[in-house]
Every structure is written in C-alpha cells, then in structure tokens.
Design a protein around this nucleic acid. Sequence first.
DNA 1: CTTTGTGAAGAATTTCACAGCA
DNA 2: TGCTGTGAAATTCTTCACAAAG
Lengths: 266, 266
Amino acid sequence: MATGRTHRPATRSRGIPEATVARLPLYLRALTALSERSVPTVSSEELAAAAGVNSAKLRKDFSYLGSYGTRGVGYDVEYLVYQISRELGLTQDWPVVIVGIGNLGAALANYGGFASRGFRVAALIDADPAMAGKPVAGLPVRHTDELESIIRDNGVSIGVIATPAGAAQQVCDRLVAHGVTSILNFAPTVLSVPEGVDVRKVDLSIELQILAFHEQRKAGEESAAPADLAAAGATAADAAASPAARAGADGGRKGPDGDVPAVMPA
Amino acid sequence: MATGRTHRPATRSRGIPEATVARLPLYLRALTALSERSVPTVSSEELAAAAGVNSAKLRKDFSYLGSYGTRGVGYDVEYLVYQISRELGLTQDWPVVIVGIGNLGAALANYGGFASRGFRVAALIDADPAMAGKPVAGLPVRHTDELESIIRDNGVSIGVIATPAGAAQQVCDRLVAHGVTSILNFAPTVLSVPEGVDVRKVDLSIELQILAFHEQRKAGEESAAPADLAAAGATAADAAASPAARAGADGGRKGPDGDVPAVMPA
DNA sequence: CTTTGTGAAGAATTTCACAGCA
DNA sequence: TGCTGTGAAATTCTTCACAAAG
C-alpha cells in the first residue's frame, strides 16, 4: 500500500469495471452451453437467468463492451461468444505452470476446465525430488530447479501456486523474478508482489467461514434469541447490556454507535 | 444468488456488511499467526499489512463488530481472535459433507484447513458404487444412497459439491431437500436453490479467465511487454468466424474506446 | 409490439482525515 | 504522543425506468 502520492486508481481497466470483468466468464460459460445446443440468439433475460444474474446488470455489463445486441431480438450467441472471448483474452493461448503437485495440485492438473479455454498446462513443478519424472495428468512432474527455463521456454506469464502455505511466498518470488505476472494462489497465505503483478486467491477455508457466518445467523433467527452472549464470559461488561432499552432486539451487539467503552480482558 | 425472483437485498446481514464478513477470515488468519508467536497486541497498521488490506478499511471493519481496540495501543490479539471467531460462528462445530470424491473431492478431504477451524468432515459421499468403502483421507467413502441419513444423523447444514458439472444441480437439490442450507460449489455450473439457502462458488476456470483479462491488458498497453504474442497468429481463423449476420452491419460498431487490439486481422 | 442500451437514482464499499481517548 | 473509531467524501457497483431501435 502507501503508493504514496498520486494514488493509482488500481483499476486501470480500460473502462471495463472490475465487477463486470469478473462476470464475463460466467456469461461466456452460459453462452457456450447455448452454442452447443445450437441456440442462435438469446435475450438478456434468458441469458441472465442462465448465468444467475439479473438482466439489467447483464445489459449494463455488455454495454461496456459495445453494442452487440439487436433491439427487439437479443444477442447473437456465436457473435457474443467471440466478443467476450476476445475481451477476456481467450483467443490466444495462455501457457500456465502449476507449482506444488500435492493433492490439490494434482487435482488442478487433472481439471478439464483448464484446457477447455485457452489455458494450457505447460508444466507441473514440485520441490520434492522424489516427484520428479512421475507422470501426473499425463505430464511428467519437473523439479523446481527447472522453473526458470520452463517459464522462459514456454513464455509462461500465469502461474498457479498450490504449495503449502510456508512455501508459497518463496515460490511466488521466483515465479515473478522469472517473468510471471499473474498468479492464482491456492495457498492460505497473503502473497506480496511487486506492482504490476496480479494475484487472485482461492481459499477454501475462507469460503467455509463465510458460509458459517450466514449459517449461524440463520440458526439464530429461526429459533428465539441468538444465544450469542452465552459463552462471552470474557467480558463482564457485556453481560450488563440490557436487552431492553434499545428499541428492536439486536441480539446484544452494540452496533456502530460507539458509546460502549472498550473492554479488554485482564 | 441465483434464484432470480424475490429481490431480497441479499445482505440481510445484521448490520455487518457483506464485504466486511468476507474479510473477517483473513484477519482471523493473521491474528492466529500472531497468537502462535505469542504477540500480545497489534496495531491496525500491522494487522492490516499482515492481512493484505489497508488500515483504514480494517478499522472500519472492526468498528462494525464493536470497539475492541485500545487507543494509543492497538488490539489485544487473543481477545480479537475470540471475538472474530464468535462473530463468524467458529466457536461451534460445523459438520460438513463433501459430495463427489474425484481428484478435487479427495484433495478437499485431505485439506488440513478444513478441520483447523471448527469444520469437521462428517462424511465423503460419491455416486460411484465402486468407490464405496474405499478410504480417503482416513474416512470411508459412502454411497449417495446414504446421503439423507448422514445429513440427519450428523446435523449437517453445510455441503461441499465437488462433482462433475452435470451432477451438481441434482446433488444440490438432494442436499437441500434433506436440510443443508449452505453450499460451497466447486462444480462449474450455476446452482439454483430456494430462498434461504446460501451458495458460494469456487471456480478455477473463472479465476484464470480474470487473470487472462488483466494479463492481456498488460501486454497490450506496454509495447515493451513479454513476447508472448509469438503464436498469436492462430486467431486469424477465429476472426473470420464471426457471423456476418449482425443485422445489416452498421459498420461502426461503437466499442467503448479506441479499442484497436493488436491482433485483429482484417 | 419486443428488447436493447443507458442516463440517472440508489446502495454499497472504500478512503479520507481528524476528533478523542489512553 | 500514538492509535483507534468514525462521520463525511469519494468511488464503485447495482438497479430503475424509459427512450430508441428493430
């Protein structure tokens, strides 16, 4: 952070909002399915339903790409598939390396979705010498020592990290040092990278925790009052929070109004 | 989301914004690491750096939970770990089923991050009878027929779907029918669920496509980019494929900008 | 008619910047 | 003094609602 002065907008996206970019693959998938069924055109309403968004959002998203629809008719499926593919950069080949061939790395290597859209697994890399040469998903695992030459020879710019958390930053640094500028990180750790390198994170545990949050809420709602305070033994002050007072039962959480003094355990 | 209909604001969150909820696990992880190193307190600046966000955002996030810090000092690590855990519902046990024990499902089953935070894998389920009984990650794979009793007997409310896309909706329906109300979906398909059921999606291919978009931009913007356009010529055929149809071809497709891609053969 | 494309309103999120407390 | 907590401003994202096009 602290880009110091001018505060780079971060989203230098040439006009296309990040939120829209994140949905384009969704549209593309829905369109591909339609294409395979030889459906010639779709309305924004139909396509939105297939992609799980609402139609206004979809139309707005497409409006950033250009005017690719026909009023009164809808969108030409094939044409839109092409346009979105091009916008996403999928009309070219993207060699990818996967580093860390454990359970997850192997699963990723076997994942068909990789190859299906312009992504080609250029190599599987692991630090364990015992793994070297072993075939996984039809490719021989290469040793980390070869990382540089693999990246160079294949023109790899996207790397997937599926190592244990402890090794991730080191692997990341090496990838970046040798020219990789986009990283998909499966290790449960925050990677720091120089400016200009993109990192996306996929974190299992985080997703589950978010679900747990909502699940907990549901459980508390349906029954009576949330039994939140039950185990909050650490703070005696909290117990004093009168459920009455405040109009509207809010389960004891004090809310954004900062008048409750900080309570710290001894 | 999906479900289309009812305009529920989706963010039913009792005051705490969805964006904040999504970051709490991140903070929790950073705090846990500090806790293991016996660090007693952290400032918002330090913690923010460890979590990969900026400090103002972190403080704002925490302000939704309450006033848990001490001005001039920072946050008590242990106390904050407890508060966030409680907020996320991690102080209780969440039995989880994983459906679809292929490469990915097996990798998930072996993933340590599951058990580490209140999540317990109650069962691994697969539709293939040949899998039944086979041990994966120390658990015997159970057949889909047992799904209902497994969910009931274990009080499972969270399900993980790691089946092929084609089976995902069906599996989802069965999970929901038997009481699961939160789903983590790894299958590349949009699930439709009744109101009240949360779905989160993890999609490999989508993440890569988003990276490709940014990667493409980098390459196009800086003329002095990595030489990965070597094989770009391959797209020529694709361009020709665009359906001539396009209703009378208005000539000037209005693209959002001087969108003159490098590789757009005439 | 039907359906797109889009200004404008509205909501959510992020960032700023500083009052106020330890 | 140092750092939190938070109104307010800025930014981003979503939704509305309707003119225009086919």
